[in-house]
Design a protein around this nucleic acid. Structure first.
Lengths: 147, 147
DNA sequence: GGTGTTACTATCAAATTGAAACGAACGATA
DNA sequence: TATCGTTCGTTTCAATTTGATAGTAACACC
């Protein structure tokens, strides 16, 4: 779907989708958050064709969500690490996961816990100002002025 | 990517991506939240080919995020309304938007305000239990037991 | 020398996408 | 009655994307 167009849309959602509107990329990011860094780790975890993986890793790197780091000179080997932008994508993944848990939750599911106090994490999106859950209060959308 | 497999993965993110790992679907949901309901409204808003739109609307309907409602018998006309599952997808869209605002925010952007008190909405994902922002505390992942 | 590991690239058939044109059912206008 | 416009699609088909499989390059280990 022409991603280049989305890049200049006034809608921040459309802009994000220019790279994130693709399941493989999101699953790679998920695995990166889970600690995977290397080509073959991703490949085995996802069962993705290597051509796809090469392309997706390249895109995510270009887009600034991952960065390549050399971890061996001989032979030359690189691993993919999350950048700040990549780490800040975690809330998106959690909200996607929360929706899946609620509406596609049959059978066994992976669960997430706060490592320090052991409580299960229940992600909710709130408005930082009012503290209200997103979706519980009416929203007004304002387009940027055309000037 | 084979979506049918994802559907039975233990990861709730993968499960959601079985239908949402696609930019068009997310943009349709965005527009549905903005109040659009009809085929041609979506088509014009998105510039999507009608073939694609037909398919995406059908998938979103099958998946239970939208529902078809007849609004005219003669001629037979239907509109697409958000279901509860579709409405509950809003937090995901907001978090995607928030990331885009932070990392792809150049130029003019649409903004969202609380319609009642006029403050701009800043969506953040927090853990409902601890109140901490997602990503600020260490997370432990627990796979379901294999039994 | 042989085997294994890692990180890819090459090839190519199959599936998906998207642009464009067409259609069916009506309602409104002249 | 004829024609135009609207809505919600379907048909067709070329171009792109995909994913499965195989191959490669550069080493390390024994």
């Amino acid at each position: 779907m022409n991603d280049e167009n989305n890049r200049n849309e006034p809608c921040p959602i459309a802009r994000s989708l220019a790279f994130a509107g693709d399941a493989w990329s999101l699953l790679i990011l998920r695995d990166a958050h889970a600690g995977l860094t290397r080509f073959d780790q991703f490949r085995k975890s996802l069962g993705i064709a290597p051509t796809m993986l090469t392309r997706r890793l390249a895109t995510l790197t270009e887009e600034g969500l991952l960065e390549k780091q050399r971890y061996s000179e001989h032979p030359p080997r690189e691993e993919y690490l999350l950048t700040a932008a990549g780490r800040d994508f975690l809330p998106v993944l959690f909200m996607i996961g929360e929706w899946g848990r609620q509406y596609r939750g049959g059978g066994k599911l992976v669960r997430f816990f706060d490592a320090e106090n052991g409580t299960e994490i229940r992600a909710v999106a709130v408005d930082e100002v009012t503290g209200a859950k997103i979706g519980t209060r009416p929203i007004r959308m304002v387009a940027p002025d055309e000037s």
